[in-house]
Amino acid sequence: MIMQIIRLKTNLSEEELLKRAHEREPQFKAIPGLVQKYYVKMGEPNSFGGVYVWDSEESLQTFRQSELAASIPKAYELAEAPGIEVLDVLFSLRE
């Protein structure tokens, strides 16, 4: 299992960001290998993120090369390049 954390700084209000995220929700639900996605608010103003849980590195790489992934900066009107971390999950507490 792979966890990916994306940190975004946006020019959008929280209300507008959530509206756009909900509009794009069906596209994310349809991604093969995406086990879960958490939409999060970071501690700084206009800072949000996504925590993705992938079934494999292959699924993550396929997503990274997709049009949906490429559309994130424009869809959320990013103020700067996103921060991205990829982590290998060693084990989970609960199944």
Rank of each mutant, 00 (worst) to 15 (best):
W54N: 01
L8S: 06
G49H: 14
K41Q: 11
F63A: 01
E85S: 09
R7F: 09
L12K: 13
A69M: 07
V53E: 14
G33Q: 01
R24I: 15
E23V: 15
A70P: 04
E25V: 06
E57L: 15
L87M: 08
N11K: 14
L8I: 09
E77F: 12
S71Q: 13
A81L: 11
M42V: 09
A69H: 05
A70C: 07
L18P: 02
D55G: 01
L60D: 00
P82A: 12
V40G: 01
A69C: 11
T10N: 09
F91A: 10
V51G: 12
R64H: 07
R24E: 13
D55S: 04
L68G: 04
I6Q: 04
F28K: 07
E58G: 00
Q65C: 06
W54T: 10
L93R: 08
Q61S: 11
G43H: 01
Y52M: 12
Q27W: 07
Y76S: 11
E85Q: 05
S13T: 15
I2T: 01
K41R: 13
P32V: 06
D55A: 01
G33A: 02
L78V: 07
R64N: 11
I72L: 14
M42R: 05
E15K: 00
E77T: 13
P82N: 10
D55V: 08
V86E: 04
A81M: 07
Q27G: 03
L12C: 11
E16M: 15
P45W: 08
E80G: 01
E15P: 00
R64T: 07
R20Q: 15
I31H: 03
Y76C: 12
Y39F: 11
P32W: 05
P32M: 06
S56W: 06
F48Q: 04
Q27Y: 08
I72D: 02
G33L: 02
K41G: 00
Q27M: 10
P32E: 12
K9M: 05
I2G: 02
K19P: 12
G83R: 03
Y52I: 14
Q27I: 03
G83H: 05
I84A: 10
I72A: 05
E77V: 10
R94F: 10
A70D: 08
E85C: 06
I2P: 00
E58N: 04
R24G: 09
H22A: 12
Y52F: 15
G43F: 00
T10P: 14
S66E: 08
L12F: 12
D88K: 07
R94V: 08
S13C: 08
L90M: 07
S71M: 07
M42S: 10
V40A: 03
L34I: 01
S56N: 06
L34P: 05
W54I: 06
P45V: 13
H22F: 11
A75D: 15
G83T: 09
R7E: 10
A75I: 13
F48R: 12
E57A: 07
E44Q: 15
L17E: 13
R20I: 15
L68V: 04
A69D: 05
K9Q: 13
I2M: 06
I5D: 04
L17V: 03
E77P: 05
M1V: 11
F28E: 05
S13H: 05
D55H: 01
R24T: 14
V35G: 01
E23Q: 14
R64P: 02
K19N: 13
P45A: 08
Q36V: 06
K74H: 14
E80R: 00
S59P: 11
V35K: 03
P73E: 10
E14D: 12
I6M: 09
L8V: 13
G49N: 14
